[in-house]
Design a binder for these strands. Sequence first.
DNA 1: CTGGCTGATGCAAATACTGCAACACTGCGA
DNA 2: TCGCAGTGTTGCAGTATTTGCATCAGCCAG
Lengths: 243, 243
Amino acid sequence: MSKSVRRAALIIDSIAEGPKTVVELSLMFDLHRSTMFRELQSLEEVGYVHRRKSGQYTLGLHLISLSKLAFDNLDLREAAHDHIRRLHKVVGNTVHLAALMESSIVYVDKVEDPNGVRMYSRIGKAVLPYCSGVGKAILADLDEGGRNAVLAGSTWEKFTEHTITSRDALDRELEIIKKQRWAADDREFEDFVNCVAVPIHSSMGVVGALSVTAIRMVQNLPQLKTHLPLMQQTAELISRELG
Amino acid sequence: MSKSVRRAALIIDSIAEGPKTVVELSLMFDLHRSTMFRELQSLEEVGYVHRRKSGQYTLGLHLISLSKLAFDNLDLREAAHDHIRRLHKVVGNTVHLAALMESSIVYVDKVEDPNGVRMYSRIGKAVLPYCSGVGKAILADLDEGGRNAVLAGSTWEKFTEHTITSRDALDRELEIIKKQRWAADDREFEDFVNCVAVPIHSSMGVVGALSVTAIRMVQNLPQLKTHLPLMQQTAELISRELG
DNA sequence: CTGGCTGATGCAAATACTGCAACACTGCGA
DNA sequence: TCGCAGTGTTGCAGTATTTGCATCAGCCAG
């Protein structure tokens, strides 16, 4: 069982990197053309890949349907759902929940004030680890290998005057964050936004983070920091629910 | 090859409907416990499913990463990308691109005025077919079976004074839409929003739709309708690119 | 403590998959 | 126009993977 499924997964991953033809794939996997053809045919049948008229294979629609369900079933999201809504009721600000998945950090839930300013963030959106509160909160609790994986491919683009733009500077800040057990984003990504974030752990280590965000004109960092005790308590409750 | 992969896909679909245990799945698929156990072990290895401490299996994180890539590689999205941006430049309004995938309609791209009012819609969000312009534009070009599939599970919730709340009324409107080759949403979902939409076809039939949306106070339906010739031309160009 | 249920692994039988060969079709260059 | 090279597609027989059984370990409830 293992072999077919494992290889099918590898083929899908390979197609995910860009469209591929039967011949390309058969060379990559050292399989006969006919075999690869049949494999792709099967994958197409179940909607995991899609064949273009040109003969190139791309990812299939079914994966998109699945991901929506995967989101809903996410352990972290489920465990945190009630807690972050309760937190939002008390603090009033926008609350974000981010998860560490594979080697990227993704927003998986958010609660925002329907009447407030709507910020540009989207559930499912990947977060830049080095210039976001949740990103830094998660990085701080990762070991060297984990940090490297998450930061691989970082552009270190300078979005504002305050953006951290080197690994060294980031590592220094992460040590502080790790000690104090919370992270801030003080205008590091957008000039008018600041937030504070705390990590969430399971028995496997850090799995995500939650943050409370505000427009700096409305609430500045010292004001946001008053929410930290409640945030840490919330994170603790979620962590406990995850085991 | 075919059998393992096909079954693996069915198992994943089954898990997508809700967490399942090894025993449940082995009964559903009439497989030996040990076999199902190994199958799930393989799927877990490649990140397609995730095992909870409780022994239940849920969808894995890897599916979420894949879906993002699947979106980017979407034929319709690629083919339409430049065209809808050009359309946006001319008309100025928010332009939505929706795709018919399996039996749901999903926003796959949108271009909006960064300075304008930001509407609540999200790429990846499922669209309610019976009270949206793109939904009705797509439904109109589907046959009986297709319509049933897409509308299965509709709640027919009445969002505004103008929402269509029965299949009969919808079918009547769809006939008109089909003839005139465009659809409108005149305050059917939100009281202050209206839009016009046109379908996009490939050789396989209707595959999506694009719409131009406006706050009714800013542009009402007759004003939006002036964009229709350009929209239809855009849809035609996209259709041609799809083959 | 014991009985039942689930998780996990080795092994031989059985089945599904592989590679080959062959053919059809396409597009390209001679 | 023709032939050629590359690709898509299918049937078939050998082989290798997967399957089911038997078995054992661990856990919880009675």
